Computed example of a mutant assay.
Amino acid sequence: MAQQLLLTGVVNESQLGQRLDQALAEMFPDYSRSRIKVWILDSRVRINGQVAATPKEKVLGGESIEIDAILEEDTRWAAQDIDLNIVYEDDDIIVLNKPRDLVVHPGAGNADGTILNALLHYYPAIAEVPRAGIVHRLDKDTTGLMVVAKTVPAQTRLVESLQAREITREYEAVAIGNMTAGGTVEQPISRHPSKRTHMAVHPMGKPAVTHYRIMEHFRAHTRLRLRLETGRTHQIRVHMAHINHPLVGDPLYGGRPRPPKGASDAFVELLRGFDRQALHATMLRLYHPITSIEMEWHAPLPQDMVDLIAAMQADTEMFNDRME
């Protein structure tokens, strides 16, 4: 069953000189470049109100884009019986608390075993919604809250809310180093020029804004609360590494174990064994896509982060006792 969806956006000035199909693939990353090319050739793409002529035409930046997308139900993805931790559900949305080691959407290296496969099993009708209702993602090893749409109207409105920055997402994290004050990182992010699985701060990237405040100080680490204004891939991880405070355990952005002097063997071992970025989506607030009622959910820290923070607290207390 085909679904129609209106996609809208504005070409970023950093995309100056790109081919249209390339620019649109970056603007709408949930859709492949080949699919976007078909939409252009089918006259489904408008630039500043005019139908685009060819995928090869160059963009200047600042153009208004509208795509009358048509999506056939994708039968490539198999329904799989995978447990989902459902925090909330109604006729229109599902709110999940995602565990570590679970990819959100099938892709290179993860053909199945994802949240999308689990959703198809849990609620088969979601197959009629593009991307099985997924409107935003969490990295494989980031835990916490994410919302999924059960219907096309709910998905359309949630995507619009995300684009309008009307959905609030807050995270807890543990960063390496002693941070003296909270602040904001406002640095554009793009794909790393040579490491294709990495993102990087780059002047020609897409705008990205991360706010952070300090929750707790440890001897050589800092517990943070962060809020996203934008939702770029790996945004918090890239921004914290950019200010020289990568997240503990981050395998891509420099979160190698750095135990403080005199730390116990048990604490050193725990730090070395923490093998994912210490990042958890702890709060999600949005206006319901159908009723417009404001709703908010909270997810407690997973056990591995609870243990990590407890060990850091114990290490700090032990050091303070020695100093007295």
Rank of each mutant, 00 (worst) to 15 (best):
Q4S: 13
L6M: 10
T8W: 00
V10T: 15
Q15M: 14
Q15F: 14
Q22R: 08
M27H: 07
F28G: 00
R35C: 01
I36A: 08
W39Q: 05
L41C: 06
R46I: 03
R46G: 00
A52W: 06
A53N: 13
T54G: 03
P55D: 10
P55S: 13
I65V: 15
E66P: 01
R76I: 03
W77T: 13
A79S: 13
Q80T: 08
L84I: 10
E89P: 05
D90C: 10
D92C: 06
L96F: 10
L102C: 06
L102T: 10
H105A: 04
H105R: 09
G107K: 07
G109S: 12
G109P: 12
T114P: 08
L116E: 09
H121Y: 15
Y122L: 06
Y123L: 13
P124R: 04
E128K: 15
E128T: 14
R131D: 03
V135I: 13
H136Y: 11
H136S: 09
H136C: 10
R137K: 13
D141I: 11
D141H: 07
T142N: 11
P153W: 08
R157L: 06
S161F: 04
A164G: 04
E166P: 00
T168S: 13
T168R: 07
I176W: 02
G183P: 08
Q187C: 09
Q187N: 06
R191A: 02
H192S: 04
P193Y: 08
S194M: 07
R196N: 08
H198V: 00
M199A: 07
M204C: 02
P207S: 13
V209N: 07
R213Q: 14
I214H: 05
F218H: 14
T222D: 04
T222W: 07
T222P: 03
R223S: 07
R225A: 09
R227G: 14
Q235I: 01
I236F: 00
H242E: 12
H245F: 06
V248E: 01
P251W: 11
S264R: 06
F267P: 00
T282S: 15
R285H: 02
P302M: 04
M305V: 02
D307K: 12
L308C: 02
M312H: 04
Q313L: 03
E317T: 05
F319S: 06
